[in-house]
């Protein structure tokens, strides 16, 4: 049923002259089965309760930003961020009400790129600089990005950052095994694809384990026996802004 519907929408999309599958796929409903049908599908589960237990911890952000040469720009207007913390009501604006439990209201929740199954940023990119790879990772080809920032307008999560200026002066300790960026391109979390290729887990997850917090869990959603799959089956999790149909690959336990 879901499949038929998507085929119909695909057809409608091409008849309308949009000529492509992405807008049609985005029209499809959010319920039912996941979009990704085969192959690895990397996903993350964030246990916000465990994260809250370590108040003020910035291990994940520090590790990520160090590993990927993310600059520390003092003025907020030009900040670049890959993973950082927001209050629960900001991260989940439509899953909040005035009477939620106190601990939730002030809870700091790690937010990052959701690596959506139907990413709006990919849909709008005029050069295919941002695209979804075969493992479900939404990534950016920094060599191709023209810096139009359409993807930033399209991202419902504010997960993308633009390099308003040359980031290098804001890097104290440049890691020589990963590039920096140049001014005028968009960047964001890449689920550590460069580490995954070497069989390592993402830097933030590793740092979270080292910090003895264990709030971040990473794994393959296409493998029903993986730890994330099992956790998702047995625990209640939510995704950010599910009503938009983007189908994030980052799940939260609250």
């Amino acid at each position: 049923m879901e499949k038929d519907r998507r085929d119909f929408l695909k057809l409608a999309g091409s008849v309308l002259g949009l000529g492509a599958t992405a807008p049609a796929a985005a029209l499809a409903s959010t319920g039912g089965r996941p979009v990704q049908e085969e192959g690895t599908h990397w996903a993350m589960v964030v246990d916000t309760r465990k994260c809250q237990a370590k108040e003020g911890c910035t291990a994940c952000t520090d590790a990520c930003h160090l590993a990927h040469n993310v600059p520390k720009i003092p003025e907020e207007a030009h900040e670049v961020k890959w993973i950082w913390k927001e209050k629960y009501p900001q991260a989940f604006p439509n899953q909040v009400h005035p009477y939620i439990e106190d601990s939730l209201r002030d809870r700091n929740v790690p937010v990052l790129c959701n690596h959506c199954e139907r990413p709006p940023c990919v849909r709008v990119c005029p050069t295919q600089a941002t695209f979804k790879d075969e493992q479900g990772i939404v990534t950016i080809d920094m060599h191709r990005c023209i810096g139009c920032r359409y993807c930033i307008a399209a991202c419902p999560y504010g997960s993308r950052s633009f390099n308003w200026k040359d980031p290098r002066p804001y890097l104290q300790d440049i890691q020589s095994d990963y590039p920096t960026r140049t001014k005028g391109v968009v960047e964001k979390c890449n689920f550590c694809e460069e580490r995954l290729a070497k069989g390592q887990i993402p830097a933030c997850v590793e740092a979270c384990v080292t910090a003895e917090c264990g709030a971040l869990l990473f794994g393959d959603l296409s493998d029903p026996e993986s730890e994330v799959s099992r956790l998702l089956r047995t625990t209640n999790t939510i995704r950010r802004k599910p009503n938009l149909g983007t189908a994030p690959s980052v799940f939260y336990i609250v």
Partner: peptide
Amino acid sequence: FIFVDMGQPSRVINVIRFPSPNSLMFWDM
């Protein structure tokens, strides 16, 4: 106005090199 808004104006030709019918920016151009 579109051109001066680009972060990487020297690469603007990428819109034509990699035509992306998904993107309204492509159709606008």
